[in-house]
Computed example of a mutant assay.
Amino acid sequence: MLLATGAVEDARALYDALTREYPTLVQAVYGLGRALSELHQNAAAVEQLARAIELAPEYGSAHYALGLAYRDLGDETAARRHVAESERTAGRQPPVDDPLMRDVHALRTDPRAREMRAFRLQLEGRVLESIEQYEQALANDPDLVQAHLNLINLYTQTGQADQAERHYRRVMSLNPNIADAHYSYAALQFQRGQRAESEAALLQALEINPAHYEARFSLGVLYEAQGRSGEAIRQHELALSHKPNGVGAHVRLGRLLLRQGEVTRGLASIEAGLTPESPETPVFMYELADFHARLGRGDQAEQWLRRAHELALQYDLQDLVAAIERELQSAR
């Protein structure tokens, strides 16, 4: 969320401050590299992402991001090497840093230090502690825009809609032209069941920044839920024009195309969503097996089932493993 275009410069500044404060915090080094990539500063991005991998050699997401950065620099050999590494190390995360050092730095109480502390906790998934630190930072400096943006998301995540809206309103009073703020507000409204308000916020985000992938993708999902398939397809296609490796848009687009009878394009789109690998990948493979089975392509269906089974075992998705094994047994 922090790297969604529209708030990316703020994110870069925050990650940069974090890496200066905590030079071995892998998540921050990785985040800085991602932000630099979004800003098309590819050489600097490669430097930071390579640092992240030095600190955590099995960090799959960092390998993938580095592969994309090398691709943008035109180094296809290095790009392929790191994308391959990302597939091997998919889902692996770096360890949390030294808790003693966290406690020492937590003694600092200036707003910027608290904001960085909050962000660090957010990276580690410690949501309630992160919220507390952001709020304390804002108590001393109510104009920290990125803190407000992060709290919109954290309060939405924890089901505290009124608090999320309060921070959205504050961002609007500081700067109404931040696409990511409208995107986050759309997510809040969607969670509330306010579809029209969610659509309006997404359209506002896209008016500010037409290349906002998350907003395009979410608008496509919203249109799909409303039965507006043609508009949903258009939004997913636009999302992929800005982010060709957007897994969600590839898979959603593929499903829609298959429903309309465009088999070749639909299957190809879902297959494109299999990279980068994640715990969702075997689910998508299972879908592909089902689609092939419906088309009477038994051999291809079995191949996808076996690939999905292998990957589901790797990610310990026991319910999916059991479902696939039942399918394979019934096919005999």
Rank of each mutant, 00 (worst) to 15 (best):
R80M: 07
E115D: 12
E54K: 15
Q136P: 07
H105T: 03
A50S: 15
G60A: 04
E85N: 12
E85T: 03
S61T: 09
Q133L: 04
M116I: 06
E87V: 12
R81L: 04
P95A: 13
E115V: 11
F119L: 14
G74A: 09
P142M: 11
L55C: 07
P99E: 07
A137F: 07
P57H: 05
R112K: 02
Q93S: 09
A78N: 15
A56R: 06
V145F: 00
H82E: 07
E132G: 09
I53Y: 00
G60D: 02
L121Q: 11
L107P: 03
E76S: 15
Y134H: 06
E124W: 15
D143H: 14
L128W: 11
A90W: 04
Q122E: 14
F119R: 08
Y59M: 02
Y134C: 04
A79W: 09
A50H: 10
Y59S: 03
P99L: 03
T89C: 11
R126T: 12
A50F: 01
R71T: 10
L144M: 14
R108T: 13
V145L: 04
V46Y: 04
L49G: 00
G67D: 03
L121C: 09
E129A: 11
P142W: 10
P57F: 05
R102G: 10
V83P: 03
A56Q: 06
N140E: 13
H63G: 01
G125R: 06
V104C: 08
R92K: 11
L68Q: 12
A118K: 00
E87Y: 05
A69N: 03
R114M: 10
A52R: 00
E87H: 13
E135L: 05
E54Y: 10
V145N: 01
R102T: 09
N140S: 13
D98E: 09
D75H: 05
E47P: 08
D98N: 12
R114K: 14
T77R: 15
A56C: 12
S130D: 05
E58T: 11
E129M: 09
D143G: 07
T109Y: 00
H82C: 00
L66W: 00
L68N: 12
D98K: 07
P57I: 05
E115T: 13
D98I: 08
H82P: 02
Y59K: 01
A62M: 06
D143R: 14
H63C: 01
P95W: 05
D143V: 13
I53L: 13
L128A: 14
R92L: 15
R81P: 00
A84F: 02
R88M: 05
P94C: 07
R71D: 14
T77V: 14
Q93H: 08
Q48A: 14
D103Y: 09
Q93M: 11
L55E: 07
G74V: 10
F119S: 08
H82K: 03
M101Q: 11
E47G: 06
A84Q: 05
E85A: 15
P94K: 09
P111R: 02
A139Y: 03
F119T: 15
